[in-house]
Amino acid sequence: MRVSQWAHDTFGQRVPLIRAGVAEALSVALENALDAQKVAQTDHLHPFGFTLMSRKFEALAEAFEDMGDVRVVKPGGSQHELVVLDGKLLFPFRYAKDRSVSVMSARIGDGRPSALVQALFNRFGPEPRMRQLALHDVAPHAVPVAEALGELPEDTRLVLIAYACNAHAGLLDAWWGEAELLDRLGSLRWHHCEQIPLTQEAGAPARGDSAAAFDQGVLPAPELNPRTGAARRTPPSAEPTPLRRGTARGA
Score class of each variant (00 low, 15 high):
M1H: 15
W6F: 15
A7R: 02
H8K: 14
D9C: 09
T10R: 07
F11I: 10
F11G: 07
G12Y: 08
Q13P: 10
V15M: 09
V15T: 14
I18G: 05
A20R: 13
A20C: 09
E24L: 14
L26W: 00
L26P: 01
V28E: 12
A29P: 05
A29Q: 02
A29K: 04
N32I: 06
L34E: 00
Q37H: 11
H44P: 00
L45H: 05
L45W: 06
F48C: 02
F48S: 05
T51N: 03
K56T: 12
L60S: 00
A61P: 01
A61Q: 08
E62P: 01
E62A: 13
A63C: 07
D66H: 14
M67E: 14
D69V: 08
D69M: 09
V72S: 06
K74Q: 15
K74G: 11
G77K: 03
S78Q: 11
S78W: 10
S78A: 15
H80F: 11
L82A: 10
V84S: 01
L85C: 09
K88C: 13
L90I: 09
P92C: 07
F93P: 00
F93S: 09
F93M: 00
Y95N: 02
R99G: 11
S100G: 11
S100L: 11
V101E: 08
V103H: 03
S105E: 15
R107V: 10
G109F: 09
D110H: 10
P113L: 06
S114K: 10
A115Y: 06
Q118D: 07
Q118A: 09
L120H: 01
F121V: 03
F121G: 01
R123Q: 09
F124W: 04
F124A: 00
F124G: 02
G125S: 02
A134I: 06
L135H: 02
L135D: 01
H136S: 06
H136V: 05
V138Y: 04
P140V: 02
P140W: 00
A146P: 04
A146H: 06
A146W: 02
L149A: 07
E151Y: 03
P153H: 10
D155K: 14
T156L: 09
L158F: 03
V159F: 05
L160Y: 06
C165G: 00
N166H: 09
N166M: 04
H168D: 07
A169H: 09
G170L: 03
L172W: 02
L172A: 07
A174W: 00
W176R: 03
G177T: 01
D183L: 00
D183V: 06
R184W: 11
G186N: 08
S187M: 06
L188R: 01
H191L: 10
C193P: 01
C193L: 15
I196Q: 00
T199K: 15
Q200E: 14
E201M: 09
E201L: 11
E201K: 12
A202C: 14
A204P: 03
R207H: 14
A211Y: 08
A212R: 13
A213K: 12
F214P: 05
L219H: 05
P222W: 11
L224F: 11
N225W: 13
R227Y: 04
T228N: 11
A230M: 12
A231T: 12
R232V: 05
R232P: 01
P235K: 00
S237K: 12
S237F: 03
E239Q: 15
P240I: 01
P240A: 14
T241C: 04
T241F: 00
P242D: 10
P242R: 12
L243A: 04
R244F: 06
R249E: 05
G250P: 03
A251H: 05
